[in-house]
């Protein structure tokens, strides 16, 4: 399995994201955003495209906004081919915000990631419920509870339609408790193909037991299944 992890321009979780795929035995390339934008076709040489957490371009205008504009422009045509070839996309935290702005989850976007309520950045560990969905990444986990850290200030899912009708079947994960004011506690979404997963919590920082808080160490293996699912899918579809 070949994985491309973006780095640079304010992203900052590329090492742990690469690490977790390497642990699966994947061949991981950490590519600087600027180098990637010059040669976006490289995407098609990889099975997984991972957008890690961070503060891309400082997130001064709105989280993920500028990186999404650049990627959308560079990946015109490539994106749909990438997905059609049964390859996978993972966006964590800032990566999720970027995918959202790239309209990766809906053709005509009705949802947005906005400032948390209560307002402000928060770092805490939370329980997450996995939903029944097409999502490749969460396959076989539905009904289970993951335990992951959230570290964000703009992770509240908001819909201009006031409901989840427009994203029916695309909710991959939700928080067990209300942690940021998200619509129906949504924490992660998938797209119509199930190949994309965008989520605010950080599974890459919660798949080794000693990284978890003492009382929940046993959750590490379950969290790790997200990545194992990707490996199985790529093996099945690409024999890689």
């Amino acid at each position: 399995m070949k994985v491309l992890v973006l780095k640079g321009e304010g992203l900052n979780c590329e090492n742990e994201t690469a690490f977790i795929f390497e642990r699966l035995g994947a061949q991981v390339t950490k590519r600087h955003v600027r180098d990637f934008l010059e040669n976006p076709n490289e995407l098609l040489e990889n099975h997984v495209f991972a957008l890690p957490g961070g503060f891309s371009f400082g997130d001064e205008i709105q989280s993920g906004h500028l990186l999404a504009l650049s990627l959308s422009k560079a990946l015109k045509g490539i994106w749909s081919q990438f997905l059609a070839e049964k390859r996978l996309v993972l966006g964590i935290c800032n990566g999720f915000q970027v995918l959202m702005k790239m309209n990766a989850f809906e053709e005509n976007r009705t949802i947005a990631l906005v400032e948390n309520t209560p307002h402000g950045f928060i770092d805490r560990w939370v329980s997450l419920r996995v939903h029944e969905s097409f999502c490749v990444w969460t396959k076989g986990l539905s009904g289970q509870e993951l335990f992951l850290p959230i570290r964000h200030g703009e992770g509240r899912v908001w819909s201009s339609q006031k409901g989840t009708e427009t994203i029916r079947g695309k909710i991959a994960l939700s928080y067990v408790d209300d942690v940021n004011g998200s619509l129906e506690n949504i924490a992660g979404l998938t797209d119509a193909t199930g190949q994309i997963l965008g989520l605010m919590p950080h599974p890459e920082a919660a798949s080794i037991s000693w990284l978890l808080p003492e009382d929940n160490k046993d959750k590490a293996d379950l969290n790790y299944k997200i990545f194992e699912n990707a490996l199985h899918y790529i093996k099945e579809n690409h024999h890689a």
């Binding site: 900052n12 979780c13 742990e16 928060i122 770092d123 850290p149 570290r151 950080h202 890459e204 920082a205």
Partner: peptide
């Protein structure tokens, strides 16, 4: 409000 876990 301080990220104490980044870099995992």
């Amino acid at each position: 409000q301080y990220d104490h876990e980044v870099q995992a």
